[in-house]
Nucleic acid binder design. Structure first.
Length: 683
RNA sequence: GCGGGCGUGGUGGAACUGGUAGACGCGCCAGACUCAAAAUCUGGUACCGCAAGGUGUGUCGGUUCGAUUCCGACCGCCCGCACCA
């Protein structure tokens, strides 16, 4: 009762319970019908992280190949799928999944086969188990005729590594060019015929040992294919089998349908009714939504909805006879797949107000953890497309911009009794002890804060120690938002000092003119401060827009340093710089900003004040400092006018003392001048 | 195994399309103020060297006047997928 993508390392993604395989009758959403468009539309999501798009692409897992038919010795036909039709003459067996209908049919009368299938089911889904799992086979006694040679008979075997969920659940095995087939063939003594030979090898002597050859090469031992490239041979086999009417080029997807049935009472009920006469019947739209019972009995195990007969028993919407509700509920991911459309008009009578949704959607900037890359984000894309097809919404893709933020991490601690929270621990000389009884505590790796590992810092405690603004500032400084951040008390303290510093700069500033006084700097110090302020406005504006909070923070440190370094600057310039500092820091430290704003003599709120603008003319200095390299090594620098021409710059560079020393009288062979950036002298 | 990403000081991290590597913060060192401490302020802080100078962005090569940035091989770490034919 979990979808494939909800299984992490053999366990349920949320509960951590070990997953086991059982056969159940369940409800699915046919997400596979959208596989191709979900795949191709990824290219249009240019404001999504490349990583997420690659993960979805791999998850959908498109592969193109050939589906073709074997005729079995009992006259039945068997479809197989392959991406390597070129290796058909290297075939040495036909493999069936234990879950294949033919296997199941034969098992009805074959007790040994039943045992074999049970043996296969025992293999867990955890990574390690699959890795160790031995190849197992069971010969069902039938043979399959080679499609190009009716006299060539291949044994048909049930094999544990053939999956029913991919392709047709049946394969032809070519041991020389597939590792799994090779392992299987070696174990059961099947032939290994190399049919693709690398260009640097001799077809007559080339053999395959314990490693299958999967590289490129020329065809051999393959009759009419001999000498062809892999690509040409693929095309030739496909074309011949298509002409014979027993093969077709097909596309396969790894993506499976979305299993949405949950055997719990707290989800959205699946609006289906089971009638003895009519079978499975959907409820009429007018009967929706199906409400859960008010009182739910959790005293026994199992799904309480199954036992609530008053709720469960209904009248069939088709025939009016006795029927019962489906007691499965929907996966909670169903709800999160379309809430954003509902949010556009939460009071609408219909589930979605199309006009409102078309006005607001798609979401401009979606922010979430990477853990939803192929769960929520794929489901929501599918839902949106399905809603579009039903005419409920005009858009195809729900989220135009996507950003995956990092996690807050902290060291983990444990003693003999289990995990210990950081505030119960005291660290001395690299070792950790419990505060209460001095018992030693083992310091574990730093991991994402979680209740289960108790490596959490309670926000209340930090806020009371440092204030909310300090914490906000700390969260945004240093580490880029897409990366995990390591919580440290030392870092938070540093941020607290900055809060104090800003407050001091503002509250202790003397002789400021009244708000609104224009800055008209006359001396160099004032001009420089004004330039710093305008540079900061430009940079912070840009960095915040690009979600580069750590760089915005660094810019504000620089501005505060510039202000502190220029107490003698013109008072109106100092006011302008302080106001810039306050306004620019407001998104990150709103409380402090409001307090400072008031202290600067304003009656309004920062929140109501326009974002500061900058004068582009102030961003550039009249002069620039250019580094001078000799043979690529920095030997000095020169200060030149911003618009100085190359010859002037070259002359200045050649006259520089360090450069002269490095040249030691030699004549430069070549001088490269990159205006405003660098001079490189090749000697 | 497949796919992707990342390796920069003691530390978190800067460095736009190749152009002064280490911005900014933390930490550390020294000094000022103080009876003292905290706070604050000033200066310093990649490495080797007294200095001149040399060496440095995981390692080794390549392209270039110039490489953290581009290319190739390798090493290490992280993430996702995985018996997918």
């Amino acid at each position: 009762m979990l979808a494939n993508e909800q299984v992490i390392d053999g366990r349920g993604w949320r509960s951590g319970a070990v997953v086991e395989r059982r056969k159940l009758s369940q409800w699915f959403f046919k997400i596979t019908a959208f596989a191709e468009e979900l795949l191709t539309a990824l290219d249009t999501l240019d404001q999504w992280p490349e990583k997420v798009r690659i993960m979805q692409r791999n998850w959908i897992g498109k592969s193109e190949g050939l589906k073709f038919q074997f005729t079995l010795s009992d006259g039945e036909k068997l479809d197989v799928f392959t991406t390597r039709p070129d290796t058909l003459f290297g075939a040495s067996f036909v493999g069936l999944s234990p879950d294949h209908p033919l296997t199941q049919e034969l098992a009805k009368t074959d007790l040994k086969l039943q045992d074999f299938i049970a043996e296969c089911r025992k293999t867990g889904t955890a990574e390690a188990e699959i890795e160790k799992a031995e190849k197992l086979g069971y010969d069902i006694g039938l043979t399959a005729a080679h499609p190009f040679d009716p006299n060539w008979k291949l044994p048909v075997m049930v094999a544990n590594f053939v999956l029913m969920g991919y392709g047709t659940g049946a394969i032809f095995g070519c041991p020389a060019h597939d590792q799994r087939d090779l392992d299987f063939a070696r174990k059961y003594g099947l032939s290994v015929i190399p049919v693709v030979v690398p260009s640097d090898a001799d077809a007559k002597t080339f053999t395959v040992g314990t490693e299958a050859y999967v590289g490129p090469g020329k065809l051999a031992n393959s009759r009419f294919l001999d000498g062809m490239t892999v690509e040409a041979a693929k095309a030739e086999v496909a074309s011949r089998l298509e002409k014979a009417g027993i093969g077709e080029l097909t596309v396969n997807y790894r993506l499976r349908d979305w299993l949405v049935s949950r055997q719990r009472p707290w989800g959205c009920p699946i609006p289906m009714v089971h009638c003895a006469k009519c079978g499975v019947v959907a409820l009429k739209e007018s009967d929706l939504p199906v409400l859960l019972p008010e009182k739910i009995d959790f005293s026994k195990s199992g799904n309480p909805l199954d036992r609530d007969l008053a709720w469960k028993n209904v009248i069939c919407p088709e025939c009016g006879g006795p029927a019962h509700r489906d007691t499965d509920t929907l996966d909670t991911f169903a709800d999160s797949s379309w809430y954003f459309a509902r949010f556009c008009d939460p009071h609408a009578d219909a589930p979605v107000n199309k006009d409102a949704a078309d006005y607001w959607m798609p979401v401009d900037q979606y922010i979430g953890g990477i853990e939803h890359a192929i769960l929520h984000l794929l489901y929501a894309r599918f839902f949106t497309r399905a809603m579009n097809r039903l005419g409920l919404i005009g858009i195809q893709e729900p989220f135009a911009g996507m950003f995956t933020q990092g996690m807050v991490c902290h060291e983990t601690y444990r003693d003999a009794d289990g995990w210990v929270t950081p505030d119960e621990v005291v660290k001395e000389g690299g070792k950790a002890y419990r505060k209460d009884n001095r018992a030693p505590v083992e310091i574990g790796s730093s991991e994402k804060m979680s209740k289960s590992k108790k490596n959490v810092i309670a926000p209340e405690a930090i806020i009371s120690d440092y204030g909310a603004d300090t914490i906000r500032w700390f969260m945004l400084s240093d580490t880029p938002p897409e990366r995990d951040i390591e919580w440290t008390d030392a870092g938070a303290e540093g941020c607290w000092r900055f809060v104090q510093r800003v407050w001091r700069l503002v509250s202790e500033a003397e002789g400021l003119p009244t708000p609104g006084t224009k800055a008209a700097p006359s001396d160099d110090v004032s001009k420089a401060l004004r330039q710093s302020a305008h540079k900061a406005i430009a940079a912070v504006t840009d960095d915040l827009a690009g979600l580069r909070f750590n760089r915005a923070v660094a810019q504000l440190y620089m501005l505060s340093n510039a202000i502190a370094d220029a107490p003698k600057a013109d008072a109106a310039v100092r006011r302008e710089a302080l106001e810039a500092l306050v306004l620019l820091s407001a998104p990150m430290m709103p409380h402090l900003a409001e307090e400072c704003w008031r202290s600067l003599g304003h009656q309004s709120f920062v929140a109501q004040t326009p974002w500061p603008s900058f004068d582009p003319a102030l961003l550039k200095s009249d002069t620039v400092t250019i580094a001078v390299q000799v043979n690529g090594k920095r030997r000095g620098e020169v200060v030149v006018a911003r618009d100085a021409d190359s010859k002037t710059v070259e002359a200045a560079a050649l006259a520089e003392e360090g450069v002269k020393r490095a040249l030691d009288g030699a004549t430069p062979k070549k001088v490269i001048v990159v205006p405003g950036r660098i001079v490189n002298i090749v000697a």
